[in-house]
């Protein structure tokens, strides 16, 4: 019989599981638009988790962080990418090298690896149960799979952004007390990276008239 987690732990774990599930959903979905929307949902979940932690564990800085990441990751970033998609007139993600079911199985393996790795670490946290850390590492792993198997710039960029969500989740577990100024700086950095990604996606699209990365094979050796 396993020890029963508290209601707080159960709730936060359930939210963290949903974050992982949205990552899997991104892997499964074929439409670029829904991929971006799933990213927004995932960011919303991470922000919600930050609010829950802030309220229950009394870490007031996290409210500010949640508000900022809500504004940035749920509104601004998806809006930017969706605008790009509207201009690019492309809908279907570059079909991966694997079928969806195999993608899920591979991602499941990678995610499970993350789980086991974290389990070996014996990290304990003041604010969140360690299951959330395992889930965060699994999110990072699955986002790697997403970036590897998809061959279009939007999926790869969204994969990177969601990797950042996974890291945010991990930081909630092990570094909730990180000084606010640093957290804000991280977020600002993300914004800059997003702008650069967006710019390069535009450049790519204007150069090759496609969002696919399948043609990016000229430089080798």
């Amino acid at each position: 019989m396993r020890p029963v987690p508290s209601i707080y732990a159960g709730t936060t774990n359930a939210i963290a599981v949903l974050v992982l599930l949205t990552e899997f959903a991104m892997l499964r979905t074929a439409l670029l638009r829904s991929q971006v929307r799933l990213y927004a949902v995932q960011s919303l979940l991470v922000s919600a988790l930050a609010v829950v932690v802030a309220a229950v564990r009394d870490v007031p800085e996290l409210y500010a962080l949640a508000a900022l990441s809500l504004a940035l990751k749920v509104v601004v970033v998806p809006w930017l990418v969706l605008r790009l998609l509207r201009d690019a007139d492309a809908e279907i993600a570059g079909s991966g090298t694997l079928s969806v079911a195999s993608e899920v199985l591979v991602a499941l393996l990678v995610g499970g690896l993350g789980f086991f790795a974290v389990d070996q670490l014996h990290v304990s946290s003041r604010v969140l149960p360690t299951t959330a850390l395992g889930l965060a590492v699994a999110v990072v792993g699955v986002s790697f799979v997403l970036m590897i198997v998809r061959s279009d710039v939007v999926s790869q960029a969204v994969g990177f952004f969601s990797l950042e969500n996974g890291v945010s989740l991990a930081s909630l577990v092990v570094a909730a007390g990180l000084p606010l100024i640093l957290e804000v700086a991280f977020l600002f950095d993300l914004l800059v990276a997003v702008v650069v990604f967006g710019f390069l996606m535009r450049v790519h699209h204007s150069r090759t008239a496609t969002l696919s990365t399948a043609a990016l094979t000229r430089l080798r050796g």
């Binding site: 990604f197 390069l200 990365t213 990016l216």
Partner: peptide
């Protein structure tokens, strides 16, 4: 070529 290189660079380095 430059945009291909930049895309690979920014993606890998960001990851």
């Amino acid at each position: 070529d430059a945009s291909e290189a930049a895309w690979k660079y920014v993606l890998l380095a960001s990851v």
